[in-house]
Design a protein around this nucleic acid. Structure first.
Lengths: 106, 106
DNA sequence: TATATTTGCAACCGATTGGTTTCATTAAAC
DNA sequence: GTTTAATGAAACCAATCGGTTGCAAATATA
């Protein structure tokens, strides 16, 4: 199954999991407590997140701590870059327009 | 059907359409020429993109020009913001570490 | 007016999704 | 050694997805 970051963040529960473990590693049980689903459903989400390398595991006895692979999030940021250029440009153009109007008023 | 921006960009074809019409408005027919699918499939993608307000239409005779609603893309950027803070922080910490090592060598 | 072009929509289809329940495995606790 | 806890995997299910074909509506063109 071909997975990518964009598909991973498409699901709202998965996005919530990502936010949840962004700052602190957590076990599947603890993560599941935050949601209105079964532990197994969360486990499946974690598998998907693992498959596209968005999270990493750290085994500790019979517990597994999941934490965010923050670098992978940059892939989304990288794709957004091209649009950021566009909207920053538009903002500049708007800014110049307002400046021109201001000057004309004087 | 509840749709959001994240679901919209989950599909690779939809991402390609977004990039395609980001700088220049296009009709469904012209857009479809760029892909290896039927015009109707592209039309469905455009409907989804319209539903979550990622694109806008401009009717011109029997043709409809689709263009990107760039502001909607900022929603993704906004969500990424929280992670950008994390990775910039990590970068700073790494930078400080390297600086400390450098000083110790002197 | 008759015809051609551009488009959206409905019906259908196989694959995938997100969820469930059940079960197996492993490690800790008794 | 037996029991309990934490976890992943498998089998199943209804809903959704992305695609197709066929058709209807609207506009341009002859």
């Amino acid at each position: 199954m071909r997975r990518d970051v964009f598909q991973a963040v498409a699901d709202p529960t998965r996005r919530a999991i990502i936010v949840l473990i962004a700052l602190q590693a957590m076990t599947p049980n603890v993560i599941a407590e935050h949601f209105d689903t079964t532990r197994q459903a969360v486990s499946k989400h974690l598998r998907i997140l693992t498959e596209c390398e968005l999270v990493k595991q750290e085994h500790q006895g019979r517990e597994i701590y999941y934490s965010l692979e923050i670098d992978k999030m940059k892939e989304i940021d990288k794709w957004l870059e091209q649009f950021r250029k566009i909207w920053e440009n538009r903002f500049k153009q708007l800014d110049n327009l307002l400046l021109t109007i201001k000057k004309q008023k004087k």
